[in-house]
Design a protein around this nucleic acid. Structure first.
Lengths: 333, 333
DNA sequence: TTGAAAGCGCTACCAG
DNA sequence: CTGGTAGCGCTTTCAA
């Protein structure tokens, strides 16, 4: 089933069918009607590959995330996709599950599809891959990794500042035994997040004891990490979690151990995903505006469709401390 | 950047480059090396559209879901994608947000991309669309909607049986004032789920009072619906939720109202998503094996890659009652 | 083992 | 307003 068959059936040329399908309004109305009828009758669906190939342009954006299961990523995707759709773009989603080989594969796939723009929201990026993307000339926006170049923009969150706010706050509440729970890819040697925690503790809470632990991202990961942490015998009065998703798992494990939050131990998250308000108790966390990030990404990737001025090449977002019920004064010994 | 440039640089024909890139091992090794070097140096990425167009085949599956935010859908996707990748397929994901026009758009898009197979995991399907898919000849598998035909398979969950188990169980615990909380698309006039609830109540719990409410799918939706329900003054001793995601929101609202679960009111979910174990209290729910569903979908869509016999055209899955702490005996008046 | 060339289905330009 | 046709970049015979 192709243009030619439709053309034949409608008694016109393929060029005309193409015009009708692309809403080019030089076509006489009677002709248009004939064509549309033929399309209907034949249940014709234009081959998008042929279209893209012939047209040269793509009208498709790509987005790569580490873990769609974490609502944080979904929220960004949702906004990006909504903006995109409004301008007639589609968005391809790829999920890497924190696996580097999957990341490589996905990036190659996106380049192969000649996406009009690519949003990469993953924890870690290999330098070679960044180079590959740079060479590809595809407008790209990274979240929290890489550096801006000709075709690459950057959105980052001032994670360090967020951690500082939390450590300061907990310190002011009297907490002196702290723990940080991350997930494996956020707790590598190079991790900004773990480093931010360590630096901040030694600066704002010099006398404090601390411990770190990590497992996977997610509920189960948070739970395991908490279990592991408690198994060491260390009894923190406050646990700082790399994100809300992990924190929700931590809360569960603490409950299991009969530890009350916040009376026995305070817990904080990061991101302010919807789930954080639904935890029990609701999480003290740091808000990161996912919708703003999604909008910015679209602007970076499709600047021509946007009226305002381009936002520049690099944007830093400050998280905002949200106090809820999972934190309180340190229990006196 | 295209095959020809690579061919020129490597001093061979485009046909040879194509052979190398497709791992057709008639190519002499020296030649292969030359080609691969050229590919490297030029940072060449084959145009996937051209490839699909020329090759005729697609090696890509599509999946359409109503709400990727609900972990249920993500779990199915994860399994399907893993199976697919193992066999060299990619999976396109589309999210409809429960919007019919989005569904239509996504289906057309998938047909236009000539996907090798399509999994449709949405709540409601218009008959015309089903027809369109049937005509398209694309191997398709529906979840919980439609009927099997030549190219369409079907996986359904015996939702009714699940609801029966829950209602019976609650009835046996002495509950006589029941409520059902759905989400809009699950509570339409045609909804199997609401209907299952109503039928079952009148059959297993004839004297029981009942009420239904609904909002969006998700945490916030569950919460609103619960708020609305309580605002009517009705005080159910048990609330049956359309799924776990909604139930988690319901729990939150009950807590807000000072209602203890399960002492004051029992709550049940459906799906047994990971989150259900992390709620407070953990949810009594009905298990639906998402991994099995994902595997089955892949088998339906790419039977040739699978060794075992094809599973037939239609499969019914029975949910399994999982008892946790969110249910208990009805409070005496 | 390699090359030449005919499409795949569509768009876009040039005529008419 | 409509038709003819040259590609888009790749795969796949058919020959060599």
């Amino acid at each position: 089933m192709n243009l030619e068959e439709v053309a034949k059936r409608a008694g016109v040329s393929t060029a005309t069918v193409s015009r009708v399908l692309n809403n080019i309004d030089v076509v006489r109305n009677a002709t248009r009607v004939k064509v549309l009828r033929a399309v209907q009758e034949l249940n014709y669906h234009p081959n998008l590959h042929a279209r893209t190939l012939a047209g040269g342009k793509s009208r498709t954006l790509g987005m790569i995330v580490s873990n769609m299961e974490n609502p944080f990523f979904f929220d960004v995707f949702r906004t990006l996709e909504a903006d995109a759709r409004l301008q007639g773009y589609d968005v391809f989603l790829a999920n890497t599950d924190y696996r580097p080989e999957q990341l490589t594969r996905s990036i190659r796939l996106m380049i192969g599809r000649r996406v009009a723009g690519l949003a990469v929201v993953v924890s870690e990026m290999d330098a070679d891959l960044i180079q590959e993307l740079t060479n590809s000339k595809i407008p790209t926006v990274f979240y929290d990794v890489g550096t801006a170049t000709r075709n690459i923009s950057n959105i980052r969150v001032n994670y360090r500042r967020g951690i500082e706010q939390v450590v300061e706050y907990l310190h002011s509440l009297g907490h002196r035994k702290l723990a940080f729970i991350g997930h494996h890819s956020a707790l590598g040697p190079t991790s900004e997040r773990e480093q931010a925690f360590l630096d901040t503790v030694s600066r704002y809470a010099p006398g404090a004891e601390w411990r770190t632990a990590a497992d996977q991202d997610g509920l189960e990961g948070g739970r395991s990490a908490a279990r592991e942490l408690l198994a060491t015998g260390f009894r923190p009065t406050a646990i700082i979690c790399v994100n809300d998703f992990v924190a929700a798992g931590v809360l569960r494990e603490l409950r299991q151990h009969g530890l009350r939050v916040p009376q026995d131990v305070s817990v904080t998250g990061f991101d302010n995903i919807k789930l954080s308000e639904f935890c029990c108790p609701p999480l003290t966390t740091l808000h990161i505006p996912r919708d703003r990030i999604g909008h910015l990404m679209f602007q970076f990737l499709a600047p021509e469709t946007h009226t305002g001025k381009p936002p520049g090449k690099e944007i830093m977002i400050d998280p905002e401390l949200i106090l809820r019920e999972s934190t309180g004064p340190a229990a006196s010994e």
